[in-house]
């Protein structure tokens, strides 16, 4: 199981590196798709089909928008300027992040043994309290409906903002 996850993670890292390093923008967009599809397969193997569906669907939408945006441009190649100061800054911050993350992740519970204090109650009482077979939906729309309302509000406001910005430029 863990070997499979590490293989998929390796594919994702390779896809990211190709997307950053390749010169053709269209190929970069296609290799970004590798990350999304590998993440979706990982969610499937971890037993989270809800999130896998969302991941596949949203990834498809984003890829189509990115493809439209890149195909419509004439010049789809990018030119690299490597600045040594930027590379040094990135490397230093990456090192600091790795040290801090190692110290922070030491205290986490091991893989496959999550802390189930509150969620155990949801699993025990969920079916009798909400009568919804899909526990994810019962948590999203009953126990934690405030969070879903917040997400819907965020989406609503962001789309209102996007429409307002696009419209303002379009009208002469």
């Amino acid at each position: 199981m863990e070997v499979l996850l590490y293989t998929l993670l390796g594919f994702m890292v390779i896809g990211c590196i190709i997307a950053v390093e390749i010169k053709d923008l269209l190929s970069a967009v296609v290799s970004v798709g590798i990350v999304g599809i590998c993440l979706s397969v990982i969610f499937l193997f971890l037993g989270a089909p809800d999130i896998a569906i969302v991941q596949v669907v949203v990834e498809t939408l984003c890829l189509i928008i990115l493809l439209r945006a890149t195909v419509q441009r004439d010049d789809t190649t990018i030119y690299k300027y490597i600045e040594s100061f930027a590379v040094a800054t990135i490397l230093i911050f990456f090192g600091v992040f790795m040290v801090l993350a190692y110290r922070a992740f030491e205290d986490l519970p091991p893989f496959g043994h999550p802390l189930m204090t509150v969620s155990q109650e949801y699993l025990k009482e969920g079916l009798t309290m909400t009568r919804a077979v899909n526990f994810v939906t019962s948590v999203l729309l009953d126990f934690r409906a405030y969070d879903t309302l917040g997400e819907a509000t965020v989406l609503f406001v962001s789309i209102l903002g996007a429409l307002a910005v696009l419209r303002r430029r379009g009208r002469r």
């Binding site: 928008i65 919804a132 009953d142 819907a152 989406l155 789309i159 379009g170």
Partner: peptide, 30 residues
Amino acid sequence: SAGTMPLCNISISVKVGVSLFAVLAALSIY
């Protein structure tokens, strides 16, 4: 079953689908 959950799902789906359609239309119209 499950009370208000199907109604919530339907209203969220209308909201998400139509708003994404509006963004796509705005991206291609404007």
